[in-house]
Structure formats: structure tokens, C-alpha cells
């Protein structure tokens, strides 16, 4: 990235384009995790990338290019969420229902059925995975969950990552 950035700063348009693409896929993923809607996320990610490219040549990065560019994205996401909140107060409940229905239609039913089967299978071998997920859904923070389970944060992440590996294997090959 450093080398790419130096080339872009020296006027290399191809390098600049590469940075744009590199950031875009990542920014889109981060935005989608918070906003859910794919199209809006793409728009926000693009907007953030355009801002980054417009400013990176003159900006002094006290925290490094990556964290600075990430800050630009976070600001765009924050603005969007704020704007959406205000708009939601003004729109009718009818269109709210429409948007929720649209979202659930996107969900892959087959995948969900498979996922539920796999979660059941995994609990026979690794009951702590469902326990950790359940505590997460209840809104517990990492340290609270560790305290409840009597484990260290290191082990907490191990339980989750091991559950993830089992889930991937089960979804791909049907076995745990």
C-alpha cells in the first residue's frame, strides 16, 4: 500500500485507481455490516473513496493512511445513519413494512435451513458455541461473557473461531 500510495502521489493514475478499488471492496463490506442495504452501502463506500482520493494528496496522516481513510468512511456512515433516523421519523409506517419485507425476501432460505441444521449438529460437539452466540444476542460484552463462562478472552475467541470452522465444514460438506 505504501508503495502504491507513493506512486499515486507522484501522479500515477493507475496506482490511484488501484487504491480506489482496494478501498472500495473493503469499505462496501464495512458499510453493509452497519446499513444492511447493499445498494446504499455501495453508494456510501464510493462516496468515501471519492473523498479519500480528493484529499489524500494534501492531507497529513498523523495516524497513517489506512486509519485516516477509514475515518472518512466512518464519518459518511455516521452521516447516513443520522439522516435515515430523521427521515424515518417523517415517513409512514406503511413504507416501513415494505422495506422490511424487501429485506427478508433477500435472504437465502436454503442457506438458512442448512445453517440451522449445522448449528444443531455443532452443539453436540461444541456446546459452548451456541452458548457464546446466545450471550452475544442478549447483548453481553466480551468481558461479561468471559466472566460468565469462566474463561479468558483468548479462549472466548478460540471457542468462536472453532465454531466457525465447524460451521464452514458443515455448510460445505455436511459433516461436523
Amino acid at each position: 500500500m505504501k508503495e502504491l500510495l507513493a506512486r499515486a502521489r507522484a501522479g500515477d493514475k493507475a496506482a490511484e485507481q488501484q487504491i480506489f478499488q482496494y478501498l472500495l471492496v473493503r469499505f462496501e463490506l464495512f458499510a453493509k455490516r452497519r446499513i444492511r442495504d447493499g445498494e446504499t452501502s455501495r453508494d456510501i463506500a464510493q462516496e468515501a473513496c471519492v473523498t479519500v482520493l480528493a484529499k489524500y494528496k494534501t492531507e497529513v496522516f498523523t495516524i497513517g493512511f489506512g486509519p485516516w481513510a477509514y475515518g472518512v468512511l466512518r464519518m459518511k456512515i455516521g452521516n447516513h445513519i443520522q439522516k435515515a433516523k430523521t427521515e424515518r421519523q417523517n415517513i409512514s409506517s406503511e413504507s416501513d413494512v415494505d422495506s422490511i419485507a424487501g429485506q427478508s425476501a433477500d435472504i437465502n432460505c436454503e442457506l438458512k435451513t442448512k445453517l440451522l441444521e449445522c448449528l444443531k449438529k455443532i452443539s453436540d460437539r461444541n456446546s459452548r458455541y451456541a452458548r457464546v452466540l446466545n450471550l452475544t444476542y442478549q447483548g453481553f460484552k466480551t468481558d461479561e461473557m468471559c466472566q460468565r463462562l469462566g474463561i479468558t478472552p483468548g479462549n472466548f475467541y478460540v471457542i468462536l473461531n472453532r465454531g466457525r470452522s465447524m460451521l464452514r465444514l458443515c455448510l460445505d460438506k455436511g459433516e461436523v
Binding site: 444443531k120 452443539s123 451456541a130 452458548r131 446466545n134 444476542y137
Partner: peptide, 9 residues
């Protein structure tokens, strides 16, 4: 999915 996880747990 969340409800299913709750039941499994």
C-alpha cells in the same frame, strides 16, 4: 437464527 440458537442453548 437467533431464536434457534436460543433453543439449542
Amino acid at each position: 437464527v437467533k431464536e434457534a440458537v436460543r433453543r439449542i442453548d
